[in-house]
Amino acid sequence: MKISGTSTLTADRAAVYRALNDPAVLVATIPGCRRLEALGEDAYKMTVAAGVGSIKGVYDGEVRLTDHVEPSRFTLKAQGAGAPGTIGADVLVTLEEDGGRTVLSYEADAVVGGMIGGVGQRMLTGVSKKMADEFFRNVDAVLSGAAPSALGGAEPAVPQPAAGTAPGSVFTAPAAAAPAGAQPGFVVGVAVGAAAALVGAIVGGWIASRRRG
């Protein structure tokens, strides 16, 4: 399943690139992300609550970033699994300068299995794009300072004075400070990426939608 899209972020390319590689940002901005653990350089383990109806569940996954060409592109490989099914995705992310803003493009090739695979392509891609859009909006809010608390609230749960990406660093989503639009339960994608953000997009997959009330 192919998913692609673009998003314009109100920060320069270097800032976007950094944000997308900052686990504290990611855990606060990936919709439904509960926990993000650094496994090593450019590798994360994450837990995302996602789904609705028959594919609602908690998904555990891993994301690796490769092929870095800072600050213009990277590839994100994600794999996730939860009770409702599995998702694997390769996502190519490219960043382009546009007068102080950044145009981010992603192209994902996702493979889904289990129940998730049975809900229809348009629904999967629709949810993925929606999650990606939401994720980028959240990132943009952080970059523009509209959601400063997101960063501040996402402290490493295990003290790790060094860089946030040291292996074993664990980041959990601030319970009360999720950016607008990132209500838990809307799912997403999995994958995400680490960096990239793309996360949502990536993975595409989780479907989700939110339960009212």
């Binding site: 594919i55 049975g118 949810v127 929606k130 939608s209 339960r211």
Partner: peptide
């Protein structure tokens, strides 16, 4: 996608 209870 936002409809509660949507499955596929």
């Amino acid at each position: 996608l936002d409809v509660d209870g949507l499955v596929a």
